[in-house]
Amino acid sequence: MNHVHPLAKVKGTGSAKSGVHHWWMQRLTAIALVPLTIWFVGSMLGLTAGDNAVLAVRVWLAEPLNGVLLLAWVIAMIYHGQLGMQVIIEDYIHNHVVEVSLQIINKLVAVLAILMTVVTVFKLISGDVS
């Protein structure tokens, strides 16, 4: 459905159709983060009893379901955090050049962090636990 007259669009007063995307993705990731965060904190609390914390985490990650949920959690979290940081930059940085630069850095850091997560979790899942 499009309620905007084409003339309004041409004049630059029409919707870019991205107005609700930020809001929607922030809520979607928030909803996903509720159970995932509780799961992660609970899992970590269950692990801390061991002598070797690093080994305990690697053994825990060797279970595929844990790897999948961990990936989902970290990716949703970074996406959500990136959306929030974007708004903080929009709100407080009034110098246009600085603002756009920070927005670019924010997006690139988020993408890099997600890629690092995917590669490292995949390595931890498929690698030997030793």
């Binding site: 690093v54 985490v57 690697r58 990650l61 970290v74 979290m77 970074i78 955090g81 990136q82 929030g84 940081m85 903080i88 850091v109 962090a113 690092m116 997560t117 590669v119 490292t120 979790v121 390595k123 931890l124 690698g127």
Partner: peptide, 21 residues
């Protein structure tokens, strides 16, 4: 707290990276 947690999530990625490397 949200801004803090975003920094913490990047630390979390580093922790995963440390585990893998």
């Amino acid at each position: 707290s949200g801004a803090t947690l975003y920094m913490a999530s990047l630390l979390m990625v580093y922790w995963l990276f440390a585990l893998a490397s």
